[in-house]
Each structure stands twice: as C-alpha cells, then as structure tokens.
Write a protein that binds this DNA or RNA. Structure first.
Length: 274
DNA sequence: AATCTCTTCAACCGCCTTTAG
DNA sequence: GCTAAAGGCGGTTGAAGAGAT
C-alpha cells in the first residue's frame, strides 16, 4: 500500500533526546495521555516525529521502567523465552516487568547471544590466528564499564536508577522456537553467584570448551513447565491496561496457549526427563 | 600520551498489522 | 470490502566510551 513516512522530515529533530525534550514529553503525556502519537509532538510543541516520541516514552520515560543492569534471573528468563519465542522481543518484554523490548534486544545481542556462539567463533578465530592473525582479535569483553554520557542523560530522566548485575548464557541465533539447536548453560545460569560477566562467556580462552552446546540443555529447558519460570508468565505485561489493550498482548495470549500445548505434549514425552 | 579497536545502546528505518472511515 | 492512517515491531546504525596497544 505504500505508506508515507511517519513524519514529513522537514524540520523534525533527530538524534538523542535532550532533558528538556524529555520533560516536555513527560509533562504532556501526564496531562493528556498519548492517544495519538502522530499528533502528540505538535500538541506538545516538540520537533520530533510521533514515532520518535513513542519510542522515547516506551523505552525510557515511562515511570514503570526498570533501569539498570539485568539481574541473573532476568537474563535467564530472556534466554529461556528466546528459546521459545525467538526474536519476538516485545513478547519477551511482556514477561519481564519493567523491561523494554529494545533493552532486551540490546542485551541479547551484546551479552547473551555472544556467549552462545563461542564454539563457532573459537574455530574461526583459531583459524585466523593460525593463518597469521586476523584484524579482529577479540579481547575479553570490556563489558559493563560503560554508562557514559549518553546513559547519564538517560538517567537524568525521572526514575532512573541503576545497579550492577551480570548476565548469563544462552544460544539461539535468530528466530523461532524450532531453530534453536543447542546450548550450553550449565555452569552459568545456576552457578557462580558473582557471575563475572566480563569473562564468563568470552569466545576464546581455555574455558571455551565448557560452553559447548549440549543437547541436554534443551531437554531440560523444553521439559520445564512454564510455571517453573522464575519470572511471572502473565499474558500481558506489567504496564497495565494500555499494553493489555494492544494486539500484541492478544498475541501473547495465543503464544502462551501454544506454548503450553507444545510443552505439555510431545516434547515432554520425547525428551528425557531430568 | 596518543591512537586504535572494540563494545554498548539509544535511536532510526522500514515493514507488517491493526484500526478507522 | 477497500484504502489509508496509525501503531507496533524487529533489524540495523552510528556516536561515544573504554580498554588495549
């Protein structure tokens, strides 16, 4: 059907939001709500496109957003949910109260996914190293040290807070439940309370072997009843009615249904019980 | 100390779905 | 039932920070 761009680009600002813009947006939404994102920027006097406002609100300004690093439980949940839902970040986010799809997506790509690909990378890197050294030698991730200016700006937003917390492992590259094939997990979801996220899952090093994916992980995971998840599996997210009215939450219901069907049928019978 | 390389994440882009007329 | 508008979602990008050299 061919849609016009979400905003006529003339004169609209792009890039990082300033605290002033945040204030204006928050104040406007608190007063008038966000019935119409498209019209909102005009009404609020913002030189932003509606989508941009929506994104900013959803991802950063909403009062119920939980900022800061992900707890181990949250990461475990992401991993499990990703196994089941694939890259359906919004569906995953709906099950992690206070977390946004964008944030989860970022965490997945920056922390979790990486840790699940060591076997491939190791092989390639070994190859490269043997071949005379690739341009990209992966260092032990210099993770979690950031949080610089931009984060500070985000934190300037009401409710911002943060705490250090680690990550955990998993694998499954892109989408769909079925495509996931193997995983390692063991030593990480459960072990190491301190969970040094910098080192645990880097792709190289003597420990790499430990992260070979093991079929048994899937058996365990797939045979695990949903109820046993450490995160509440509510059909709609923690953000209340607004989200519940969206079509995506209906989709989440469907997904829950099918997941249960899936879990309660073949999988449990075919896979070895723990 | 300077430069390079890598990592992180906020924000954008464009497609798909849903809703309204 | 059709079309267009709006909302929603996932993929991708690029600026900036931090560690390595």
């Amino acid at each position: 059907m061919g849609r016009a761009p979400c905003c006529e680009k003339m004169g609209l600002k792009k890039g990082p939001w300033t605290p002033e813009e945040d204030k204006v947006l928050v104040a406007h939404i608190q007063r008038f709500g966000h019935g119409n994102w498209r019209a909102l920027p005009k009404q609020a006097g913002l030189l932003r496109c509606g989508k941009s406002c929506r994104l900013r609100w959803i991802n950063y300004l909403r009062p119920d957003i939980k900022r800061g690093n992900f707890s181990k439980e949250e990461e475990d949940s992401i991993i499990r949910l990703h196994q089941q839902l694939g890259n359906r970040w919004s569906a995953i986010a709906a099950r992690l109260p206070g977390r946004t799809d964008n944030e989860i997506k970022n965490v997945w790509h920056t922390h979790l996914k990486k840790r699940l690909e060591p076997t491939n990378e190791i092989k390639e890197e070994a190859h490269e190293a043997a071949a005379g050294g690739g341009k990209k030698q992966r260092r032990p991730a210099a993770v979690a040290k950031r949080g610089g200016a931009r984060r500070a700006a985000a934190d300037a937003v009401p409710e911002a807070s943060s705490a250090a917390a680690p990550v955990s492992p998993e694998r499954s590259s892109s989408s769909s439940v079925t495509e996931s094939s193997s995983v390692t997990e063991q030593g990480n979801t459960g072990s190491s309370p301190a969970f040094p996220k910098e080192e645990s899952f880097t792709s190289s090093g003597p420990d790499a072997e430990e992260f070979q994916f093991d079929e048994s992980f899937w058996s365990e995971t797939l045979s695990m009843p949903l109820e046993s998840f450490d995160v509440p599996m509510e059909p709609c997210d923690a953000f209340g009615a607004a989200a519940a009215t969206t079509s995506s939450s209906a989709g989440a219901d469907d997904m829950d249904y099918w997941l249960r069907v899936f879990m309660e049928s073949d999988v449990q019978q075919e896979l070895p019980q723990i």
